[in-house]
Amino acid sequence: MKKLKKWQLFAAAGAAIAVIGTGSVMVFSHPTTPDQAITKETPMVQTVKDGSIASSVLLTGKVTANQEQYVYFDGTKGDLQSILVNVGDQVTAGQPIVQYSSTEAQTAYDAAVRAVNKADRQLNDLLTNGVTIDTTGDEEADAKSASQTQRTVDSQASDLRDAKSDAVDNMNKAKALLDATTVRSNTDGTVVEVNKDVSKSTTGTNQTLVHIVSNGNLQVKGELSEYNLANISEGQEVVLTSKVYPDKTWTGKISYVANYPTDAGQAGANAAGGTQGSGGAKYPFTVDITSEIGELKQGFSVNIEVKSSTQHPLVPVTSVMADGDTSYVWTVENGKAKKVKVTLGNADAENQEILSGLKKDAQVIVNPNEKLEDGKEIGKYDKID
């Protein structure tokens, strides 16, 4: 992160303190220059708290339905008989929306049903009526004959059960093919597209017959560059903005980040939204919108500001000083000023993230000036929230 120069810090300090003065603490009257701002004699001290700042990662994406269904023409299902819905219709999951007609599928199913019925009749007849054997009056010979016949009956019954099981399996497969000729909605939603004039030849494949979008929450989908992938993870909170409504914001949470990039040749065609940078691999991601949808509509392009998922000590930007390439803050310990070297992280207009050198609950001087000396008592100071 680029460190602030001294004159920038002083200017920011003057602006911030002027605002605070309008509330409860008036430190000086009319600072007009950086030099005037650093001559304040009463330090203001604030307790360091942990927090997070939006990262510098900015993404773009496109608002899409949480769930949608495209039904494409499929000649393998048979002849297209009818489309059962119209644009604007509200449909429920499981509702038939496209019907094909297939004589072959119907014939195969009917034949499979007959095979099941035949196997069932044969098995039932054998178990009910059994078989008849002639007896000779010789008990030993008749018992032996009955035993052999019983084994034969048991074997026939086993074969018939196997035949019936095979017939049932074939019937179920035929039923599945027949059921596939009726295409059903897989979501509750609204029909937004219907195309009844599709080519019935093989060239008609991939032509949309029906497009349904769910009535649930919207999502945002886009692609990350490989450079941003390391800084983005599932569960991170985001803030969404749209050029259509520049004064409004929405909140969301990253719900999916792909581990594998999209095919380079298809990246442009498949991208729901772009990212910073044009080179390198692209990784799809999804954001669930957690706030009220309001005026946000499907198809809107939005900017996505990713919030950091880590917590670090935060200090006012006015408290950070620079000495060449070194950044430091002034703290108060036992009534004495202490100069503390720090490593800076992200920053916004008000707060600076401290990655190292400072701990939570430290007392940092918000309005440091050049009169401060390391280890010297600072006397009276004002403590602010």
Score class of each variant (00 low, 15 high):
2 K>A: 15
3 K>S: 13
7 W>R: 00
7 W>I: 02
9 L>I: 08
13 A>P: 03
23 G>M: 12
28 F>C: 10
29 S>E: 13
29 S>D: 11
32 T>R: 03
34 P>T: 05
44 M>N: 04
47 T>M: 09
47 T>S: 10
65 A>G: 13
72 Y>S: 06
75 G>A: 14
77 K>I: 10
83 I>D: 06
94 G>L: 11
98 V>R: 05
104 E>Y: 07
114 R>E: 11
115 A>D: 10
116 V>H: 00
117 N>S: 07
118 K>E: 10
124 N>E: 10
129 N>F: 06
131 V>Y: 02
131 V>S: 03
135 T>F: 01
140 E>R: 07
143 A>R: 02
159 D>Y: 12
178 L>S: 05
183 V>H: 02
188 D>R: 09
191 V>P: 08
195 N>D: 01
200 K>N: 14
204 G>K: 09
214 S>Y: 07
224 L>V: 10
227 Y>H: 04
235 G>P: 04
240 L>R: 05
242 S>E: 01
244 V>R: 00
250 W>R: 00
251 T>G: 14
257 V>Q: 02
282 K>I: 11
283 Y>C: 07
288 D>I: 06
291 S>Y: 12
305 E>K: 06
305 E>I: 01
306 V>A: 08
310 T>D: 05
313 P>N: 15
319 S>E: 15
328 Y>T: 01
333 E>P: 10
337 A>L: 00
341 K>T: 09
341 K>F: 08
342 V>P: 00
350 E>Y: 14
352 Q>R: 15
353 E>A: 01
363 Q>S: 08
365 I>P: 09
370 E>P: 13
372 L>V: 00
376 K>T: 04
380 K>S: 15
380 K>P: 12
384 I>M: 01
384 I>A: 05
